[in-house]
Amino acid sequence: MRCLVVYASLNQVHRLKRHIYRGGLYVDMVRAPQCLGVRGCSFALACDPALLPAIRDASKELAIEIRGVFTESPDGYVSLR
């Protein structure tokens, strides 16, 4: 089960992905599903839940707003905050 950390734009997701990669971690990028309802079109980092703290730290460090954190479940997506 992976997590989706949603951001406003692909530009922000790229910046975070590269920053996290420099720290030795790999995360994927996806278009955020529309059903998440996070302010229209958005992109997300997709990762193992174990990487969530690193992503939250990176977002804080780069001052990029997280617009939602979700985990995939058999019934859909569950918000983690």
Partner: peptide, 17 residues
């Protein structure tokens, strides 16, 4: 269009969008 904040009638606040 910027591919971001698409439900908003105004430009995003953040750069570069």
């Amino acid at each position: 269009g910027t591919g971001s904040d698409s439900d908003s009638p105004v430009q995003p606040e953040f750069a570069p969008d």
